[in-house]
């Protein structure tokens, strides 16, 4: 009923155990009408394969790109997407809400 991201985090663990570089992205804040609730996860491997969702498809592409950078550098990032943000317009957060996504490397 409450835990919904079971397979996502389990998959991240499996990828990491298989020796892949992995990042976990988590929705940490939302303002206005955001498509995915706080706590939603997207996991990304070094090849750009991903599972889960932080926005129902609007900004996933940007998050994956940033995640590859995080996997490379090992340095976590806090990303914000919203109507006031040029990147978000490009990525198309069409609902008009704003979200903050924390992206960190596993390992």
């Amino acid at each position: 009923m409450i835990s919904t991201d079971d397979d996502i985090l389990t998959t991240a663990e499996a990828w990491a155990k298989a020796g892949k570089g992995v990042a976990v992205a988590t929705v940490v804040e939302t303002w206005g009408s955001a498509p995915r609730p706080i706590g939603s996860h997207l996991v990304i491997d070094e090849g750009g394969t991903f599972l889960g969702s932080v926005s129902g498809g609007c900004v996933e592409g940007e998050v994956v790109t940033e995640a590859l950078d995080v996997i490379g550098s090992g340095k976590a990032k806090l990303l914000e997407f919203g109507v006031a943000d040029e990147t978000a317009w490009r990525a198309g957060l069409s609902c008009g809400g704003r979200i903050a996504v924390y992206v960190e490397k596993v390992g």
């Binding site: 985090l9 389990t10 990491a16 390992g107």
Partner: peptide, 28 residues
């Protein structure tokens, strides 16, 4: 996040135990 933490979080879920992951958004 260390892999050990992710493992512990997943293990807690598999065993139906409550758990809270505390993350420092400034990278701690």
């Amino acid at each position: 996040m260390r892999l050990e933490l992710l493992k512990a979080l997943n293990a807690a879920r598999a065993e139906r135990r409550a758990a809270v992951l505390v993350t420092d958004l400034d990278g701690g």
